[in-house]
């Protein structure tokens, strides 16, 4: 039977303003996890009832560890940031479907924005062929060196110009006249929407990892929905980000919100 496990925290350090990197001894979760999946972390404080879904940044099957990179955005993630090495945290996972890795693609483009960047790192490790990575941030970048370690060519855009190209990631992609055989993407919805529109014009297939407010993370509450077109494209349904996603093909998604 599946269960919520108490995992030992091996590392929990600040890597950028408000962003933490947490490594967990995974009790076998690493072995069954795939890029783009996520883990539910549970708060100790009972008034914070719901799990926090956090994407998996790196999987180490040999050492049975999982790395999560998360932003402190509220009281729950603040609580996580105060957990000391050696302490335990309740976790359930892996959850969701992750990216569909297309091994035959020769030129992979990865597009990430802000706290949507972490799950793309484990993805990059698992791709064949050339990898070009475009990452956008408000001001300070994260994980750039890690992407380079896996042989990716990394391009950075920041809104305030403090690092790399000044502007958004799509402007940088257009400027560099990017082309490729597939795009994998995760980040804020406006970025995904803009890149999806561009990809459609260029006729490049694209996968997007979506985010939505969740309660359970296991497909029961039907809270975290997004509009997904039916196969024949004549109608649409609300699909669950946690269970049907979080990764979808960009041309299935209705981007109206």
């Amino acid at each position: 039977m599946r269960e919520i496990k108490k995992l030992i925290v091996l590392e929990n350090k600040l890597i950028s303003s408000n962003i933490y990197s947490m490594v967990l001894q995974s009790k076998g979760l690493a072995k069954i996890s795939k890029p783009g999946q996520f883990i539910n972390l549970y708060c100790r404080e009972g008034s914070r009832l719901l799990p926090r879904p956090i994407s998996i940044c790196e999987i180490n099957k040999l050492e049975d560890t999982i790395k999560l990179v998360y932003a402190v955005v509220g009281a729950g993630t603040k609580e996580f940031s105060n957990i000391k090495v050696g302490e335990k945290i309740e976790a359930l996972g892996p959850l969701g479907n992750g990216f569909i890795i297309e091994k035959d693609k020769t030129k992979n483009i990865i597009v990430g924005g802000g706290i949507g960047v972490p799950p793309l790192l484990e993805l990059a490790k698992n791709l064949n062929g050339e990898i070009e990575v475009y990452l956008g941030f408000r001001s300070k970048s994260i994980l750039i060196e890690d992407f380079k370690k896996y042989g990716a060519k990394v391009h950075v855009a920041t809104e305030d110009g403090s690092e790399g190209f000044k502007g958004n990631v799509l402007e940088l992609m257009k400027k560099n006249n990017v082309n490729g055989s597939i795009i994998y993407s995760c980040g804020p919805k406006p970025m995904l929407k803009a890149v999806a529109k561009w990809a459609k014009k260029k006729n490049i297939p694209m996968q997007v990892s979506l985010e939505e407010r969740m309660a359970c993370g296991i497909g029961v509450c039907v809270g975290c929905v997004c509009k997904i077109k039916d196969k024949n494209q004549s109608d649409w349904q609300y699909k669950k980000v946690c269970k049907d996603g979080p990764v979808f093909w960009s041309d299935e998604v209705i981007w109206d919100e």
Partner: peptide, 21 residues
């Protein structure tokens, strides 16, 4: 059902507006 967001946490509880999807 209703549009998202459909979930909000509250102190010791939560709100939902799934709308019987």
């Amino acid at each position: 059902g209703n549009p998202a967001p459909r979930i909000a946490e509250t102190y010791g509880g939560m709100l939902n507006s799934v709308g019987l999807q």
